[in-house]
Write a protein that binds this DNA or RNA. Structure first.
Lengths: 337, 337
DNA sequence: TTGTAAGCGTTATCAT
DNA sequence: ATGATAACGCTTACAA
């Protein structure tokens, strides 16, 4: 494998000059530049990335932590982030935490070992206190996930409000016994949504049915199971708030196959506006998130920190959602007065 | 940032001994080991990964090239690969080529720059001749994608056979005018499938309708457009082979919304057995791939190459598929005699 | 069992 | 405009 030394020798110049060419620095005559470029070509020379990183103390790489790539929401998020990052010459490393505290910390370790320059966290399962020390090793930006009193930039939606509106919508359709299905209570996000759900109930004087709260309902399969449980144990439930379109789809699917009418017997709302929600029959009411905008902003904010390591107070960017009402919740003859 | 030197000093030992502890090597007394571990802890020491890589010439990282992570097939593939790789202490870098020749080569460059020890290609858009030279820089394994006379291990299904069987199934259901929708003709895979499709037609004496072949039909949206085209331009078409469940879903969706009956007016088969195909109404007939098995084997094969750099002839592992017949193609009263 | 010392391939500093 | 030289932080012969 050819090194910079080999190139220098072949071109009859010094390593320094070759390095200048590699890094597009000034003070190299065109003639010598050409000689070097040709030598590089001849030897098939490629700079060794570990050596560059070691010397320059930069990796031009950022890590994006997410629960699982197979969740389309995060898939789309990472897709946009990568596009944006590459525009700035940055690589992205995808880090799946699978909602594990240990894995989350393992990946934050990348910051300490200098494998990445910065980190984006799109979910947060550890306590913030545990994560904060890693800030010493490099910038962290929160996208999607968020919390109060945290000294890092945050880019996200108002999930409490979104859940609140979804729930109001269900109530407006005449639902009076609502179930709440969540992807897990560990994250701050999940608590925000639950708060919005409860607030809507309270405002309309409806009871919060503790027993009809289910956690760790994430996949389609979980949604199917949840429906069966509702059918057998809580037949009075007439509306379901879910934190994901997959779960909503599972419910719609299983309900249809069990002879329940959606939305008349059971109204369902999902979250994220995934393709799936539109394709289901009936189509699933859901919350649209401005994924690309959030992703782009996140990368911009992180890279700005990387470039200027500015000590300005971290900003917070809040994006707005959109409730997409579809047939899984919209009753033809609304019972609401 | 503490270095190995700092730890050595604090523990009153040499860098070498510290290094031995870091790498779990023998010949360190328990007492000194403890002293070192404590020093590391005290200083919050973490080995610098660039330095290790530079010195050891290994990255313990492999790159997996795929078209797009938002395609659930590849999402699941990468999920399994990552799991397997981490069992061996390897990291995985996800590289989205978006079917671009340039990006594919850019990512292969990771091998040359020593950012990764090996590469898995799950799709191949460049000519093999262009890719082959990269083998000098490290091992490459093909998973999913495959071709003849290539000196690298291959792990894949027989796509020609799968397409052949799907097509026969459509014909058995009484279809006589078949359309063929492909995700792109660039890959060898696509050609294999087309060959299987054609063979089935030929065997049953049906015509191959050149005009009803559509390329670059990938997403749900493409499927919807494809249906509209069929409806307007080729109303005689009564069966469609598609290379993806998304496309099939788009067709089913659009057809239903246009008043066509699936499968009676139009039978549809998809590919990959994605969740979506089961959830559609009607559910989509599809081809199940043994994703986890293929992913696991791929990583094992690659890591074996990494560990032993054996010069044995590269093996080829062919896995078998399973045609899942569902309502998008199975006619209640089969017309076939 | 432990330590010395020589690199790994770059880039940054300082001369020239 | 170009070059010599010293790091960057670690691993690994080899010596002790």
């Amino acid at each position: 494998m050819a090194t910079i030394e080999d190139v220098a020798k072949l071109a009859g110049l010094s390593r320094t000059t070759v390095s200048r060419v590699i890094n597009d620095q000034p003070y190299v005559t065109d003639e010598k530049k050409q000689r070097i470029l040709q030598a590089m070509d001849e030897l098939g020379y490629v700079p060794n990335s570990s050596a560059r990183r070691l010397r320059s103390q930069r990796t031009d790489t950022i890590a994006v932590l997410l629960p699982r790539i197979t969740n389309p929401f995060f898939g789309n998020l990472i897709e946009s982030m990568e596009k944006k990052a590459s525009q700035w010459g940055y690589q992205v490393i995808v880090c799946q935490t699978h909602d594990s505290k240990k894995k989350e910390l393992d990946y934050l370790q990348l910051l300490k070992t200098k494998q990445v320059d910065g980190v984006v966290m799109t979910s947060l399962v550890n306590e913030w206190e545990v994560v904060e020390p890693y800030l010493e090793s490099g910038p962290i930006v929160l996208c999607n996930e968020y919390m109060e009193d945290t000294p890092v930039p945050m880019i996200h939606m108002d999930h409490r409000k979104a859940a609140y509106e979804s729930t109001l919508h269900l109530i407006d359709q005449g639902c009076t016994n609502l179930a709440y299905l969540s992807g897990g209570t560990l994250t701050h996000l999940a608590m925000e949504r639950l708060a919005g759900f409860k607030r809507a109930l309270k405002e309309r004087g409806l009871p919060f049915i503790e027993e009809a709260v289910m956690d760790w309902v994430i996949q389609v399969e979980d949604g199917r199971n949840a429906f069966r449980k509702i059918k057998e144990e809580f037949p009075l439930i007439d509306g379901v708030f879910t934190g994901s379109d997959e779960v909503a789809a599972g419910i719609v699917y299983e309900a249809s196959h069990c002879g329940w009418a959606i939305p008349d017997d059971l109204a369902v709302v999902g979250f994220d506006n995934q393709m799936l929600s539109l394709l289901m029959a009936p189509a699933v009411t859901t919350v649209e998130q401005p994924i690309t905008k959030m992703a782009d902003r996140t990368i911009e904010v992180l890279i700005q920190q990387l470039l200027h390591s500015s000590s300005t107070t971290p900003r917070r960017y809040i994006y707005s959602h959109k409730l997409l009402v579809r047939n899984s919740s919209e009753k033809r003859h609304s019972i609401a007065k």
